[in-house]
Amino acid sequence: MPKAAFPNKILPYLLLAPQVLVTLVFFYWPASQALYQSVLKEDAFGLKTEFVGLSNFSAILSNPNYLSSLQTTLIFSVSTALLAMAPALLLATAAEKVVRGKGFYRTLMIWPYAVAPAVAGLLWLFMFNPTMGTFAYMLRAYGVAWDPLLKGDQAMLLVVVAAAWKQISYNFLFFVAALQSIPRSLVEAAAIDGAGSTKRFWTIVFPLIAPTSFFLLVVNTVYAFFDTFGIIDAVTAGGPARATETLVYKVYIDGFVNLDLGGSAAQSVILMAIVIALTAIQFRYVERKVHYA
């Protein structure tokens, strides 16, 4: 590759500097702090610090609370990812059929993505709050014993729905783009080949958007793992009885509420390993993405 000719030797480094600085300050520094803290034990007032090796990790991994939080996270993430993707795909296929006002319809669909997680959480909290929520009132009117403040499974359902709702717009955008990239003649050829619309969808359209679906599955799982703190904090604060305490939320509770900084740091290191693994998988598959041409 020919080298781009910069007349000044320092200029290229100066141009790179802001990005490198941001990455250093906001990623490498906190990450290295977490790594450092994860091998230390500190008292709640920060007066005494002692090196403890990997004992924070062994403590976490043998703690039943941590393992149940891991299970909660898995259930939460998988349900959120699926619930965020299925309706998005349905809406995207519907958007293809809109004749008038396509742009308007799509714009409307994108709005929820602009809502901050905590606000989205509050929105759902208000709708389904057992004492003042409109929908909670309606549910009870229909004989559903609705009380997410006491019932763990209902609390989980509520945070899953709130977290998924916010993500539907994002997935919708990707699905719309994926659907648009399928040549119309393929679908027409299938119609001439005697496939009804349902069959066309499952045998032609769905396989062709599979790379996008896989990409979204990873992105949504990562989102549910790491970016749902605001929603969980606003809706359930991890309760009732840790029923919605995901790994990320537990890092916060243990570190900033229970002031076990070493344990919390060790948890975040484990999370870091998970996110690195997920990202690696994603890149591997995105690169291998079948090129249909």
Binding site: S185, L186, E188, I192, I204, P207, L208, Y292
Partner: peptide, 13 residues
Amino acid sequence: IAMVFQNYALYPH
């Protein structure tokens, strides 16, 4: 009827 398209419209998968 059967149709042959300009871009062939073969199912790529």
